[in-house]
Design a protein around this nucleic acid. Structure first.
Length: 431
RNA sequence: GCCGGGGUGGGGUAGUGGGUAUCCUUGGGGACUGUGGAUCCCCGGACCCGGGUUCAAUUCCCGGACCCGGCCCCA
């Protein structure tokens, strides 16, 4: 019998792991350029940390268990509560705070495309600013990451604002806002008749429901939002203010990216704790789940700590991103140091191979020598299947004159060069 | 939790109610007496698991786990 990974988990082999490593490193590089500092937190936390925010539905989908001290603990299903915990535990940190992390997250549910039971999520937050500059900066970070991956033409950003939606719904006469938002979130997944009956179940009359549905269908060019809304609903001062804020954020965001940006009034994000802007990134073909998503959550720190700290952040999971990169033929390793296989013609020279391999490694190259005392032809075969760029062959005759054979494996060309020349060439390759 | 689809060596496949389960590839070893990925030879490796029907199940039936996708939910 054999063992396999658990359902919804992944084994990742070198050909993918290498690309992932580079992907993560690019994300961190952009975050660092934006002045975001890395944090880490435990993979196991008290279950209560997540109950406070989201309640039973979330708890049902966690990998949770009782520890030996009879405490309810869980593999973390999201990054934000832990991040807020770190922030609120150190009151001297000067604000605004820009933090990022790349945790593994777990959710216990049926796996499907782009959603697994274990995934890695890039997560970034800004704490201590309630301005549109923070909103634009955090979305800008997400766009710079994707743009840096060459995806500028492949995705779009959908913007909306929770305050705006609350005011619109209020003006229409709908009081049960959370229920209405939850139904709005279904828009596009179910037909409009279903939406109508869902609203009806929540005590929203048909006229109100029709007014809402009329708002949802279009992805708007943000500058057109004011005219669009004015033509359909009553605009009080508050709503006008919300629209202006969203349009101003859009204007700022244009500084960061040329990617497509729309206002999508059906993008509300599921959970109730968002308090301002909400946003999601989608592939433009609309085939995949959200690439990233986030928003402003000014009340969460109060719930967890009694401190009131405005916050805006997003998460970007590895699963959907990987699918998108593969579909657009961008899933390949790029930066790789040159790899040398140091081979010898006879077993007697094996020790010389070790010496030369060590020297090449010191110079920053990747170098291997044979571990199994195999024939030269086997060593070369191995070099080729290990994806080496060059074979350095140490032969009996050559070594006496201080030379080796440098063979370019891709072309088969080879030449005799002195070890000094080799060292010089390798060094130049790795400056 | 629910629904649909799927399974033969590591990958890709042929085939069958009955005999040592086909072929390609990958992997390991060797030959070619110092140049690989060529050629030749050798070796390893599979019918998802359990139950049922049957003289006989990899094949038919049922169930389960797993994989792919969808629902629910979305962090």
């Amino acid at each position: 019998m054999g063992f396999e990974h658990l359902k919804g988990f992944r084994d990742i082999f070198p050909e993918d792991a290498q690309v992932r490593l580079e992907l993560f490193s690019k994300m961190e590089d952009v975050a660092s350029r934006f002045g975001f500092a890395p944090i880490e937190y435990p993979s196991v936390e008290p279950l209560d940390l997540f109950k406070i925010k989201s309640g039973d539905e979330l708890v049902k989908q966690t990998f949770s268990f009782k520890d030996k001290g009879d405490r309810e603990v869980t593999l973390i299903p999201e990054a934000t509560p832990s991040t807020v915990r770190l922030l609120t535990s150190r009151k001297e940190i000067s604000r605004p705070v820009r933090w990022y992390s790349m945790p593994k997250l777990w959710r216990y549910e049926e796996p499907q495309s782009g959603r697994l039971r274990e995934h890695v999520q890039f997560n970034a937050d800004i704490f201590g600013s309630d301005s549109i500059y923070a909103d634009a900066e955090i979305i800008g970070l997400a766009t710079k990451i994707l743009d840096g991956l060459g995806l500028k033409e492949e995705y779009e950003i959908r913007l909306n604002d929770r305050n705006l939606m609350n005011n619109i719904l209020g003006n229409i006469g709908i009081s049960n806002t959370p229920a209405a938002l939850s139904i709005i979130d279904h828009y596009g997944k179910v037909d409009n008749d279903t939406l109508l009956s869902e609203m009806s179940d929540q005590g929203i009359d048909d006229e109100q429901a029709e007014s809402v549905i009329k708002l949802l269908g279009n992805n708007l060019n943000p500058p057109d939002l004011m005219d669009f809304l004015s033509s359909l609903i009553f605009m009080d001062d508050k709503t006008i203010e919300n629209v202006n804020r969203l349009e101003d954020t859009y204007t700022l965001l244009k500084k960061y990216t040329d990617a497509k940006i729309v206002v999508s009034l059906s993008t509300v994000r599921g959970l109730g704790y968002y308090t301002g802007i909400v946003f999601e990134g989608f592939d433009r073909k609309g085939e995949l789940r959200a690439i990233f998503g986030g928003g402003r959550y000014d009340n969460l720190s109060k719930l967890l700590s009694e401190q009131s700290i405005p916050a805006v952040g997003f998460g970007m999971g590895d699963a959907v991103l990987e699918i998108l990169l593969k579909r657009t033929n961008r899933w390949k390793a790029e930066q790789r140091r040159k790899k040398y296989a140091v081979c010898c013609s006879t077993k007697k020279l094996a020790d010389r191979c070790i010496d030369l391999a060590l020297e090449l490694r010191d110079l920053g190259a990747s170098a291997i020598s044979d571990l199994n005392n195999r024939s030269l032809s086997a060593q070369l075969k191995n070099a080729s299947s290990n994806d080496c760029d060059y074979a350095v062959i140490i032969g009996e005759a050559d070594i006496k004159s201080g030379k080796v054979t440098l063979r370019t494996l891709r072309t088969g060309e080879q030449s005799q060069i002195s070890i000094e020349e080799l060292v010089k060439a390798v060094r130049n390759d790795h400056i």
